[in-house]
Each structure stands twice: as structure tokens, then as C-alpha cells.
Design a protein around this nucleic acid. Structure first.
Lengths: 324, 324
DNA sequence: ATGAAAGCGCTAACAC
DNA sequence: GTGTTAGCGCTTTCAT
């Protein structure tokens, strides 16, 4: 037996499709008797409305696209989880898209999302701005990323966090603090607050700056080699600020391999990281708050309540200290 | 200017909607001139087809629901990532659903997915079987979970993996090997291959069995307390097999807090775990293979090519040895 | 309080 | 080769 549809329910209950629709949506008035009969018919036929048909008619899908590099990284895993939760609670569904920070991939996904009539998009992917975002008069919110003047940004206080991390290492009397980042030199020149926080803080204390760029697009093995190379070429390094926890973990593995005792501070502070790496200090982003805020902004925009001035929402970070 | 639709393109090109549709789908014949005119019109109007309308007509959404506890856990993060990749490459979209292993939540999601006319569902959530799966004549594939006789299962060789882990500890002369698991006693009684592997292997060597149940639904803090309690109550424990890597990480944190030197072997072996916990051995599941197989099976089922006999696909595991 | 009919955007017989 | 028409399942004026 195939799926029952609204018309079937109508026949079964001896009313018109219109009336069934009204019962379904609690719109308009109808006698309790009719209502009951319809409910009974729906039960008996095991009816549930076809959301695709509803979407086509209403021009609203209750679908939100989630564009993130991938949920392998615990930070993205946690923020995507929280976003999905918040969306689900408010009747929205999450279409997951792994962009791997690949601009071409991201653009394809974007077109796919538009074709699927999503009501909104939350972007945490870190590729260069695409003009596709402009075209659609769509609810778009970015996580820690500049897309265009019109797209609100939710992020943690990258600058303060980087200062906090660096200062923490300085307070422990470390003198040769290196920075490990996934950003390239070109990206940093365009502005990278975590890097700036590190530079400003080390400068303030007349300490040297040493930056190691790790290309996340490369294989794990290659990344490790790069780290090992850096560490052997800069043997006096006594502390490291890594701008992401996964990178911090990789770096720690390398220092262990080399038998080095180097203090490391990461960035992100996802719950899983805190559980898995109990000996790496980190800057914790308020992931849940960021997720909820991003969802609020998205749904506001969908409802047509656009934010006026405040385009950037910067949430506070905190330092999680760990021994070593 | 609002979104262009097929009819607009038709008018603009001076043809009928049918012809535009044909051009779009490369169906039937048409003069190159017409084709060109239509393509030009589509460009000028910035047209792209509305997938919702297509879905309504064709009865096919190219949507697959992903039911997993949540992608916070690196194992789920990685398998969901790989599934999304494999689906995306074959033109399918992923609807992410965090069930938190909550049966009620899972059932709600299931109904949502049915209402949204998904073509298939991949379930990695570990709650008790729901009868909703039966009703729908839908493509369903389970990851390491029994749903019903008809639903194929993709899993790693849990029994062999548990034996491998336990044997590895025994080979290192450990005598008091405890098992940490997220399963309750009741769940274990119904059959839990990782637990069975541990029990059989320790018994074979005349070693004692000690099982500590950790309730993942509880807060992190509570879980840790439970672990600490167990460790202080069982001070002679010299090695631990944890049936999941996140749990292994938590256990390791506790052993460090207590100043204990206990060997730990985990289970899962996600890439992120390997990077973050360089001193915990683990049993690696072939996550990418599992994801690809699950997607193949799902798409086969969608295409109507149901598997005949083989309902359970057991993939091999491997041991990743780490110092300590 | 209920029904008839048109339409959301696209596709597919079936004609010409 | 191309157009006409009906219909996917639902909602919504507009009547009654």
C-alpha cells in the first residue's frame, strides 16, 4: 500500500481536501465532529503530510545549509552539533556540506543549496568570499569569517584570545614563543587577529616572533614533517601558541617524538579536546553560545528582521590552564 | 527581481516550457539553434531549476538522512564526513540529525525524514529498534547496529578488535585488565561483541574480568567521577581496554590525575584521535571504507538493487600501537 | 462551517 | 522538433 495523501484522507472522512488541510493547520473553524472524523481518518490511513509539496506551495523549505570545512575537527563537530540542535528545536533541518575550504567545492554547494530553496545558510568555511552569496536574497550568517558587508559575523574574540595565550606563556617565563598557524603569509597580511594578538603581545615584551605556517590541505604526514622540521631548525623554541587545537595536538606529538619539553597553548577548547588532551592549555571559544547566536541571527533574517547596525558579534574567550 | 522560473526562460527564448525542460534534461531532440537560444536565456535570467518542484514531480528528493548520536565524537565526525563526501559525489544531499541516542528524539527525526521524502537513511544511532523503519519502504542502512532483519549492517569486526586489544595488553604481561564500556549490563546481556572479545580473551588466559560501565548520557564531570571511583576501588588494575576512544581519553586523564601508570587501549582510531592522543593505543576501524560501503548499499537500495543474502558486512580492524 | 478551483514550478504523455 | 495539457500533493482565495 502506498503512502496516503491528503485526498485519500478527505475521501475516507467524507469531506473535501480543503477541510483536511484546515484540520492539519488548525486554520479557520470547523465542527468538532468533522475534526474528529478527519483525525480518525488520518490515523487509520497512517497519514502524514508531504513536506515537499508544502514547500513548493509555500516557497519555504525550513532548510538551512551548513557550510563547514568538515566535522572531523572537534571544533567544527561541536559547533555543527550545537547549530543542528538549535535549528531542530525551532523546526529547521540541517543540510550538511563539507567544503574542505575548497572554493570550487564551496561554490558548487552554494548553488546546490540555492537550487534546493534553503531558507538560510550558516558558513564556517574559510575560503575567499564568493559572489554567489550576494545574488540570493537569502539569510546568511558567517562564523568567524568575512563574506560581505551585509553578512553578519559571529566569532570569538580572536585578538584577546591570542593575547591571553601568549601572555600566559610569557608569565611562565618562556622567552622563545613560536606561533603555529594554518594561515599562509598572504592570508595573514589580509588580517588575522590571532596572529596579530601573538605579535603584539610578544613585541610588547621585547620577545622575538617566529611563525610556522602549516598547510592543512596537505596530508597529516606532511604536516608533521613540517612541524618536525621547524622544531629542529628552531631548537631554542621553549613555548608554542597554536591557533587551533588539532594543530596543537599534532605539534605536541612532534615535540614528544623529539623528546622536547615545550609548553603549548591551543585555541578552540571543544569538550572533546579537553577530554582527550589533558595536558595542553587552550583558549576556549564559547561554542554553544556562538551556535545559538548564529541560529538566532539566521532565523531572524529568515523572518525578515534584519539586524540594523551591529554586524559583528564578538564573544568572549577564556583560558583553560593545564599542567605542563 | 525575483527568481526566474522555467516559464520565464521559455518566454524569453520564445519557446514552450516543455522545450526548456528538455534542454535542461537533455531529453529528446531539438535544433541546435533552439538549444542555444534557451541556454542564452537561462544565462541572462540567471536561471536555475527549482529542485523542490522537481522532487515533487519525480517523487525523488536525492536526500539521505544521517541519524547519529552527534558529530562531537571524532569517530562519528569522521564517518559522517566520509558519508557526506560519498553521497555528495553521487548527487545526494545529507540531512544531519543528532539523536543523542535518545529513542524519542530518534523517532521524531525519523518521522521528519519520512515527511521530507528522503530517499534513504543511514543510522548510526544506538537506540532500540523503532518500528517506524519497517513501515516505510525506504532504503535504510545501519552502522554497527541491529535494526531489523531487513536492514543491512555495516560494522567493523568488534569481536576480533576486542580480542586484539585484550591480547595486546596480555602480551605486555598485564594481569589486571579492566574493561570500560558505555554499554549497560542489560545491553551487554543482549550481546556486545567488544565485551565478549574482552571476556573470552581474558578467560582464555585465566585472568579476571572487571567491567566498569560509564553512562554517556551523563555529564562529563559525572563520568570522570565514576572512572575515578572505579580506579580507587580497583587499585590493582594495571591495564584498561576502553571500547571507545573518547572514553579512553577520559580514562587516561583520570589515571594521570591519580598519578597512576596504567596502559590503555581504545577503540575507533579516528584520524583526529590519532593526532591528539599520541600515547594511547587503539583499534582502528576502517572508517572510510565503512562510510563508502554504507553509501553504496544505500544507493543500491534506492535504485532497487537489494542485497540478497549478505546482510552483515564486517570490515577488518587493525591495532595501532603506541608507547606507554 | 465547508467546498470548488486555481496554482506553487516542473515534467511527461501525447499530439502535431 | 516543438507545443498542449495534465498532474505531482498541498494550500488558499473565494464562494456558498
Amino acid at each position: 500500500m502506498s503512502k496516503a495523501k491528503l485526498g485519500d484522507v478527505a475521501k475516507h472522512a467524507g469531506v473535501s481536501p480543503t477541510t483536511v488541510s484546515r484540520a492539519l493547520n488548525n486554520r479557520g473553524y470547523m465542527s468538532d465532529k468533522t475534526k474528529e472524523r478527519i483525525n480518525k481518518a488520518m490515523q487509520e490511513l497512517n497519514y502524514f503530510p508531504n513536506e515537499v509539496a508544502r514547500s513548493l506551495h509555500g516557497g519555504k523549505t525550513n532548510l538551512v545549509g551548513l557550510l563547514f570545512p568538515n566535522v572531523t575537527n572537534p571544533f567544527y563537530g561541536e559547533i555543527v552539533t550545537e547549530i543542528e540542535n538549535a535549528l531542530g528545536q525551532r523546526g529547521y533541518k540541517s543540510l550538511l556540506c563539507n567544503t574542505y575550504n575548497n572554493p570550487k567545492q564551496e561554490e558548487q554547494y552554494l548553488n546546490m543549496l540555492l537550487a534546493n530553496q534553503v531558507d538560510g545558510i550558516i558558513v564556517g568555511s574559510r575560503t575567499k568570499p564568493s559572489n554567489v552569496y550576494q545574488k540570493a536574497n537569502l539569510a546568511v550568517v558567517a562564523i568567524d569569517r568575512i563574506i560581505s558587508a551585509k553578512v553578519p559575523i559571529v566569532r570569538s574574540d580572536n585578538y584577546a584570545g591570542a593575547c591571553l595565550a601568549t601572555q600566559y606563556l610569557i608569565d611562565q617565563k618562556f622567552k622563545r614563543i613560536a606561533l603555529f598557524t594554518g594561515s599562509s603569509k598572504e592570508e595573514i597580511e589580509k588580517g588575522d587577529l590571532r596572529v596579530e594578538g601573538y605579535i603584539d603581545t610578544t613585541k610588547k615584551h621585547n620577545l622575538p616572533q617566529t611563525i610556522c605556517h602549516i598547510d592543512f590541505e596537505q596530508e597529516d604526514m606532511y604536516q608533521k614533517q613540517r612541524v618536525l622540521q621547524f622544531l629542529t631548525q628552531n631548537p631554542k623554541t621553549d613555548a608554542i601558541f597554536a591557533t587551533g587545537d588539532v594543530l596543537a595536538g599534532i605539534v605536541q606529538g612532534c615535540t614528544q617524538d623529539l623528546g622536547l619539553k615545550i609548553a603549548i597553548v591551543g585555541y578552540d577548547g571543544s569538550k572533546v579536546f579537553q577530554n582527550l588532551c589533558t595536558n595542553i592549555s587552550t583558549i576556549r571559544q564559547p561554542i554553544e553560545d556562538m551556535a545559538k547566536l548564529a541560529v538566532d541571527l539566521t532565523l531572524d533574517a529568515i523572518a525578515g528582521n534584519f539586524q540594523k547596525e551591529n554586524k559583528e558579534f564578538v564573544l568572549p574567550v577564556s583560558l583553560i590552564k593545564r599542567s605542563i
